[in-house]
């Protein structure tokens, strides 16, 4: 098998894994099962990022999403009592047939629109200064780092303040009142 086919086949398999695991994530009744399928989705997305020459983002995906965010979500799922949030035992009436059909129609329209845009819209842009070979020669993380601390320094600083506010806000909100 030649190298061209290998990358494409790997992409197709990973894309299938992403779609199947995200459908399972959205449909499982048990939130913990949802969270575990979400982790599978995130890892498969990291593989796709690797195939698209974004090594730094792939590692950040595994560390931030699959590591930090999903761990936080699993903690909260285990902290709150899920029996009381059960979707079956709700006091509200389930959706009527017409409402379900309207939602399904809306979603089909959304999907068709997105696919139409993805397949038929010809993107035109100036080709950038970072072809894959040149980036690979320097190193992907090094290139991203040079951009973050150079051209995007101000947004980077704003992001750090945002993270600080997030930490303080989470502690303030979740603090148990005496």
């Amino acid at each position: 098998m030649d190298a061209i086919g290998f990358k494409f086949i790997l992409f197709m398999i990973t894309a299938l894994v992403v779609i199947v695991s995200s459908v399972l994530m959205a449909t499982r009744k048990n939130p913990i099962h949802s969270a575990l399928w979400m982790i599978v989705t995130f890892f498969a997305m990291a593989v796709i990022y690797l195939l698209l020459n974004a090594q730094f983002i792939a590692v950040a995906q595994v560390m931030v999403y699959a590591g930090a965010i999903m761990m936080l979500i699993l903690f909260v799922i285990m902290m709150v009592n899920m029996d009381k949030g059960d979707e079956k035992k709700t006091t509200k009436a389930p959706w009527s047939f017409g409402k379900k059909m309207a939602a399904a129609l809306l979603m089909v329209i959304l999907l068709v629109e997105l696919l139409f845009g993805a397949l038929f819209y010809r993107m035109t842009a100036r080709v950038g200064d970072y072809p894959a070979d040149a980036v690979a020669a320097v190193g992907n993380a090094k290139t991203v780092g040079a951009l973050l601390y150079g051209q995007y320094l101000f947004p980077f600083e704003v992001a750090s303040i945002l993270l600080l506010i997030g930490i303080v806000g989470a502690v303030v909100i979740a603090k148990r009142n005496k």
């Binding site: 931030v64 930090a68 979500i73 992001a159 945002l162 989470a170």
Partner: peptide, 16 residues
Amino acid sequence: MTVAAVEAAVGLAIFV
């Protein structure tokens, strides 16, 4: 990703 991480922290605190 930064914004998603902050959103996760604050959102889950709100859920708790």
